[in-house]
């Protein structure tokens, strides 16, 4: 992980809107425990959207009709941001899958007036749907724009209502939802491991997005597990690893890998508007 991320983790604990002190990951002592995270290799990502579809199906996310997309109220817990580089015919497409970063020092957690979102002891940024009152402070506070508000009750046309995942709540109008790292799958593996009286094996937990990725660009792992292959990968690839908007000090749980293109044009104006999906 980058040095700035470590600095962020060791900073003073944040204070919630209710005046309670929220300890950071480092203070809770997570370095020894589990910290779920992901390694996203952007050099492998082809922008195929399989993860988006898998997530939609796994997590009972309502259908995004054209109107919803035009209104910018479409919900995709993981989205592929596409950037064009260069002019046709020498244009290159760059893809970045963006999902909840499960920040160790999350800006969304401190602003929730009802503690509907909090950090659990496995490094997950958890959203408790039945506690959420829909103030949307968290969505405004999130620098990655990965929290989605339910403006409508979700609806599925006739046969599709029968394919909902029973392990995931169907979120109603008026609450915020976001990527959970497929917490229902983590829980299932944990219960199975406990029932069989053993520890969770490395790589046993797979969220829907990582499972469906054809190029293994998304790899889910325990960032604190030295045996975990992705952790070794990140270590080895330290030269091309970075975290999204790391200067915000959010200590994201997702590490991106990208080889810096030696032929990339360097923009003279750092503040030039990026053609990013808002």
């Amino acid at each position: 992980m980058s040095s700035s991320a470590n600095e962020a983790a060791s900073r003073a604990s944040a204070v919630s809107s209710m005046g309670q002190t929220i300890p950071t990951d480092a203070e809770v002592g997570h370095p020894e425990g589990v910290r779920w995270g992901m390694v996203v290799d952007l050099d492998r990502c082809t922008g195929c959207q399989a993860c988006v579809v898998a997530c939609q199906a796994e997590n009972n996310i309502a259908l995004n009709e054209e109107q919803r997309v035009l209104e910018r109220r479409a919900k995709t817990w993981i989205r592929i941001e596409r950037y064009w580089e260069g002019e046709f015919p020498n244009a290159k497409a760059r893809f970045i899958p963006v999902l909840c970063q499960h920040c160790g020092n999350a800006p969304c957690e401190t602003v929730c007036p009802v503690w509907a979102t909090y950090h659990n002891n496995e490094g997950l940024n958890v959203q408790v749907y039945n506690r959420c009152i829909g103030t949307r402070f968290c969505a405004n506070g999130c620098p990655y724009s990965v929290r989605y508000f339910n403006f409508w009750n979700p609806e599925w046309p006739e046969p599709m209502n029968n394919q909902l995942n029973p392990d995931v709540t169907v979120r109603t109008k008026g609450i915020i939802e976001k990527c959970t790292f497929c917490i229902q799958r983590i829980n299932r593996v944990q219960v199975t491991a406990k029932t069989e009286g053993r520890e969770i094996r490395s790589g046993e937990v797979q969220p829907a997005c990582a499972q469906s990725c054809p190029t293994s660009a998304l790899v889910f792992c325990d960032l604190n597990d030295p045996e975990s292959a992705p952790a070794q990968l990140a270590e080895a690839e330290a030269g091309r690893s970075y975290t999204l908007l790391e200067h915000f000090g959010t200590d994201p749980g997702i590490i991106y890998l990208k080889k810096v293109d030696p032929h990339a044009e360097i923009l003279e104006d750092d503040h030039a508007p990026a053609e990013a999906h808002a």
């Binding site: 909090y118 659990n120 002891n121 997950l124 958890v126 408790v128 749907y129 039945n130 506690r131 392990d167 995931v168 709540t169 917490i183 229902q184 829980n187």
Partner: peptide
């Protein structure tokens, strides 16, 4: 007593 233990 973690919320996520029981709430989905």
């Amino acid at each position: 007593l973690d919320c996520a233990t029981c709430h989905k």
